[in-house]
Design a protein around this nucleic acid. Sequence first.
DNA 1: GAGTGTGAAAACATTCACAGCT
DNA 2: AGCTGTGAATGTTTTCACACTC
Lengths: 214, 214
Amino acid sequence: MKNNTSIPKATVQRLPLYLQCLDQLDDNSVGISSKKIAEIAKVNDAQVRRDLSYLGTLGTRGVGYDISTLRKQLELELGLVDGLSAIIIGVGNLGSALAEYGGFKEKGFKIVGLFDSDPGKLNKQVGGLEIKPLTEINDTCKKYKVAIGIIATPENVAEEIAEKLISSGIKSILNFAPTMLKNKPGIQIRSVDLSQELQILSYYLDRAPLKVSK
Amino acid sequence: MKNNTSIPKATVQRLPLYLQCLDQLDDNSVGISSKKIAEIAKVNDAQVRRDLSYLGTLGTRGVGYDISTLRKQLELELGLVDGLSAIIIGVGNLGSALAEYGGFKEKGFKIVGLFDSDPGKLNKQVGGLEIKPLTEINDTCKKYKVAIGIIATPENVAEEIAEKLISSGIKSILNFAPTMLKNKPGIQIRSVDLSQELQILSYYLDRAPLKVSK
DNA sequence: GAGTGTGAAAACATTCACAGCT
DNA sequence: AGCTGTGAATGTTTTCACACTC
């Protein structure tokens, strides 16, 4: 399929999942079928084929997908090829955890700055980086062409931090503070609210065995 | 609307969001309109009304929703009323962050146990709880009727931890390990993969201004 | 006038089922 | 025989638009 039209949102959400599936293949196999991916990702196999077809004609009929080609294409489509830089604002427990989280580098992201408003934390090292004051956000963004800002501050300052990030040229924000940031045009915001995840689980508690509207 | 039919998945995902919106109302207002909620939650206002209508007839035409009634109903529907218990397995950076994360108690969840396989961590206190060995998971689950298990271990042990949790009677798992857990019938699993969130943001980087399929 | 609740329409997403390639 | 890619069918979600209530 020729790729002019843009990829559906629902598909974009699953692409990282497929990438994860590939990483999880223990054996050194070379090819994989949509059925196998579907099994690991827990989705329908037609779904996998349709999703992957948005990336181009990647598979071989009767055979399957070449793992290395597929991985490359997924990374390309997701824009992971040239190691995006990110900074973390708020180096409390969560911020530290993120700073030391191995998964980011593994997936091609580079944390290039840690920032905190607490003077007591300045110059401390976390995950190999020194904690800097908020005033240096702008410089770091310029210097490293930072693509993504990760907010791990308390909720009450998240909004002003978001504005600071945007004024430093950042276009994408991953927000861990449990607050809804205001919409800014042209800025991508994703929020991960840990409590909300628990709340969703809570809804399905004990109802799981009953028929739930798919 | 009488509520026999079950609430759509997409709606369930948004209910915690609406709850968050209410918490965020700084002023001591008593009522709120779907339009206002929509603005904060960044969704369409008809969506808000449709979603809330699944919980019953909560609003008053011409007036709006009573905030306290609405909050109560949201909490009821999500099953948050009787303070669910959760345990955390893996007390590394992320596990510690979760253990000390205030948002959980605030939203009515109670962390009642921390577990780690590292003997060096045993008996240390984190967030007011002592770290226990994995062998005690089962006892704690029974004693506190633990509803939810939170996995914050390295990926390579996540699967076996999941099985241990299930065999201790846990029906809902929140998985932070970057690995796809196998499906178990009757068990609810939600995964939060931090890298995947960044990857999704990465896709929309610099494409945001272009027309992206909604 | 303001704002809900909801049919009906539109948009989007998933799944089936099979032709076509290896 | 096995597996992809994709029309067509189906299912789900969102949005419109308006009757109805306060």
